[in-house]
Amino acid sequence: MATALAVVRAQSLFATAMLSGVFSLLSALLLVVLDAVDVAFTEAAVGAGISTVLMLGTLALTRRFESPPSHSPVLPLFVVLVTGAALIYGTLDMPNFGSATAPAQVHVGPDYIERSVEEIDVPNIVTAILASYRGFDTLGETAVVFTAGIGVLLLLSGLRRRRRDKKEDV
């Protein structure tokens, strides 16, 4: 929370990038506390590692300090407060943390836990679900990552190459 406030307040974009890395690392710790080790792993590697590096890379392309805001912050603040209030109102309906009767615990969860040992025989049930029961989803995810990479390539390096080609034509 304090880190998030510091991210908003900091004027130097370098500090902002670093603080958002810290924020990711802290949320990774939070996920470890919640026993979601696989997700925490991803958050630490992607959020705190790669995206900080990419932000620094972007920073080197632009200026290093925030430009002064050009309009009053009242409307954005109002939108953020309303959205936040709606989200908190939504959590009131959620089952208590660790509740045995939560929908997540009674729907397909027990089925996976019971069957994965004899069907897949992989101790890490998360892997078993991701790669085997939900193989289609993971294939889609991989395709999404691939598409994202192609998108960045087209946007960032394709343009430059074309310009160079034109120069050679001249």
């Binding site: 890379g57 790669a131 691939f146 994202a148 390096s157």
Partner: peptide, 30 residues
């Protein structure tokens, strides 16, 4: 199932490595 998961995870790993390094190259080469 074991072989399948191993192969599929290898596919995911190779793609993610490729894409992450691609994005890094794309950013820093500019």
């Amino acid at each position: 199932q074991h072989y399948g998961i191993l192969l599929v995870e290898l596919g995911v790993g190779v793609t993610v490595t490729g894409v992450m390094v691609t994005i890094y190259y794309a950013f820093t080469s500019r």
